[in-house]
Amino acid sequence: MILVLEQILNGLQYGVMLFLLAAGLTLIFGIMGVINLAHGSLYMIGAFAGTWVAAHTGSFWLGLPVALTAAAVAGLLIEMLVVRRLYERDHLDQVLATFALILLFNELIVLLFGRQPIFTPLPELFSGSVQLFEGFPYPPYRLLIIATGLLVALGLWLLINRTRIGMLVRAGSTNRDMVRALGVDIRMLYTIVFGLGALLAGLAGYMAGPILAVQVGMGEQILLATFVVVVIGGVGSIRGAFVAGLALGVVDTAMRAFLPGFFRTFMEPAAADNLGAGIASMGIYLLMAIVLLIRPKGLFAPGA
């Protein structure tokens, strides 16, 4: 029981990270119609910049603003120099141009930091473990991530539903051309949304630092899962990204934790572990294929 609860919390923590990335990606997708494979690079840039500062100053909290700034600045640069030229192009050009960006950023990071993974120090206040209840210790840092994610979700909900920018974002993801025709400075909106997405990716990257290794290629690992979240949730839908992100986080974590054990009940251990891990890795893609076959536009697609 404790084990199940622990895995659910771990799953929520992973799901929240997926949401932070997917929220930006789904807006960029939905509003600008751009497939941004380089979103994982922004996540990586946030992690590296923040961790570098944190390691040199010894303070987790000083790294945070640096991570956010670095990711946002990188995002704005990408938008102005590359993505802006891709709005009117087809998906193929977008995929390839942002794929090229992945190659560029990965090699740049290798040049700057080398190939060895680096580690982010845990913030003092959140190291160790807390007893959630009798006999159930849990690392408070993971709880912090969950709380941050939920807070961001709430903030985004307010932003999207209660502000003028949010109104434009909603309008943009339903009918881009109409918003433009009504005289809205769509380029400004694009830049803001892209910067916001980059900021959230940087936040996710930096928060992942103490849990995962900060290394080149970390962006691609989570990028594909993020795309699965975006597509399942419905392109352009923050609500979809939230629901699909949390659900996928829990499902993925649970499968990785429990499938090998399940197969061990009727198979030899080595084969069971292999099969369990394999099916667990396939799980989210299988889920996406099933969802798309039933609802080709995803669960919460705007205008669907």
Binding site: F29, I35, H91, V95, L224, F227, V228, V231, V235, A270, A271, N274, L275, A277, G278, I279, S281, M282, Y285, L286, M288, A289, L292, L293, P296, K297, G298
Partner: peptide, 29 residues
């Protein structure tokens, strides 16, 4: 299965099937 979707979803679903096969072969000792 994939051709029932289109656009971005087609790109992603073909990617998903390829990833499934990738992990399938990784899991075959």
């Amino acid at each position: 299965l994939s051709l029932r979707t289109g656009g971005v979803q087609f790109i992603m679903i073909t990617l998903a099937f390829a990833q499934m096969l990738f992990f399938f072969f990784v899991a075959l000792p």
